[in-house]
Amino acid sequence: MTRFHRPPAGARQHAGPLTYLALAAVSAVSLFPLYFAVTAASSTQARIARTPPPLVPGGHLLQNLRAVWHYNGPGGHTLALPMVNSFIVASAVTASTVFFCTLAGFAFAKLRFAGRNVLLVLVVATIAMPPQLSVLPLFQLIAALHWTDQLQAVILPGLVTAFGVFFMRQYLAQSLPTELLEAARVDGANTLQLVWHVVFPAARPAMAVLGMLTFVEAWNDFLWPLIALTPSGNPTLQVALAGIGGGYNVDESVIMAGAVVTTVPLLVVFAVFGKRIVGGVMQGAVKG
C-alpha cells in the first residue's frame, strides 16, 4: 500500500504552493535593494529624508540622472567617458582572456609536451591567489611608466587568468574528441589549423561562458582601477561611482542615481540573456 504513495523513484518533486511562496519572497528580497535604489534615485533629497522612506518611485529621476551625468562639475567630462572606458576595458580583457586561455587550455587538455603537468599544477595552485595582492608592485610599475589614468594600466593586468586556462582545459578535455583531432592531423592539418578549424568551433560554448564571467568581473572590478585611475581623470564607471559616493555634500538621491546608472547596463544584459547566463554560471560551477 505505502509503496504507491512513495514518490516515483528518481523523479524530481513537484513544487507546491509553499515552494512558490518561499521563492517569490526570496526573489523579492533579492531584487528589493535594486528597486529601493531606483525609488531613491527618483526622489528629491527631502523626500528620502522623510519617515517612512519612499517605497514607490518619485518624479525626479531625470533631474538626478542629469546631475550624475555631470558628476565631474561644469566643464569636466560627463559620465559618458567612464562608460566608454568601462566598455573598452571589459571588452579588451574579455577578448584577450577568452582567446589566450582557450589556446593554453587546449594545449593542456589535448597536447603532449615536456613539463605539462608541472605547469598545470602551477596554474591550478595560483587560481586561489587573490589578484589584489599584486597591486602594490603594479602601482610601482605604472608610477615608473607614468601610466596613471591610462586605460592600459587596468587592461594589461587583466589580460589572462589562471582560472580561464583551467576552465577551458576542463571543458576541452571532456568535450573535444581526440579522434576528431587525429582525423584532422591525418588530413594534414598543422596545429594552427587544428586550433582554428577544430578547437575554436568545439570550444565555443565554454568560450561564451568564460567570456560572460570575465566581462562581469572586469566591469565590476574595483580596487586596482581605484588605484590606477582617478575619478576626475580618466576613470572606469566603478571609479567614477566611488568618486560620486565618496564626495562630500552630495545629494543621496544623486548617489543612488549613480548606482542605478552603473548597474543598469549589466542588468539589461542579464534580463535579455538571463537563461543563458544562468546556464553559464551553472556550467562554470560544474566544470570549474
Binding site: 535593494p33 562581469v216 574595483f222 548597474t263
Partner: peptide, 16 residues
C-alpha cells in the same frame, strides 16, 4: 535570474 541579479551589481553600487 532574480537571485542572480545581485551578482550583476558591482561592489561599488551594492555598497552605496
Amino acid at each position: 535570474v532574480a537571485l542572480l541579479a545581485p551578482y550583476a551589481t558591482s561592489v561599488a553600487a551594492a555598497a552605496l
